[in-house]
């Protein structure tokens, strides 16, 4: 449950970027969390909402989009969907040579007044 320290990183990022853009309040923040990012989206959102008090994100609506996990098969080279990091290729049961999607953990955009 390291989602709280990640929530603090988001607050820091929002504060820095808002400063650069000369805004003092954020109304909405859009965050992308990949299914294989190692971040549990629900506890992250809960943690963020708990920690925003007194910060630039205090009144912000937190929107999270999830990106499905994908891997490239080491055997037959197809790309297949992965629900967990242990999923195997549905065609040949091989493990992926690498994760090709779902590792995202980023702030897409913020909406300010």
């Amino acid at each position: 449950m390291h989602e709280l320290s990640l929530a603090l990183e988001v607050i820091g990022l929002a504060q820095r970027e808002a400063g650069k853009n000369g805004v003092s309040a954020i109304q909405e923040i859009l965050i992308e969390v990949g299914d294989l990012s190692g971040v549990e989206a629900d506890s992250f959102q809960w943690g963020l909402e708990m920690l925003v008090k007194g910060t630039i994100l205090e009144d912000a609506v937190v929107n999270i989009i999830r990106t499905p996990g994908k891997g490239k098969c080491i055997g037959c080279n197809i790309e297949f969907e992965m629900k967990t990091r242990l999923d195997v290729c549905p065609e040949c049961q091989c493990f992926p040579s690498g994760i090709t999607g779902g590792k995202e953990f980023r702030v897409v955009s913020m909406l300010a007044e």
């Binding site: 990640l6 970027e17 980023r106 702030v107 897409v108 955009s109 913020m110 300010a112």
Partner: peptide, 10 residues
């Protein structure tokens, strides 16, 4: 309203 587009890794 101002959209601040970031696409930044957290």
């Amino acid at each position: 309203k101002k959209v601040i587009s970031l696409n930044m890794d957290i």
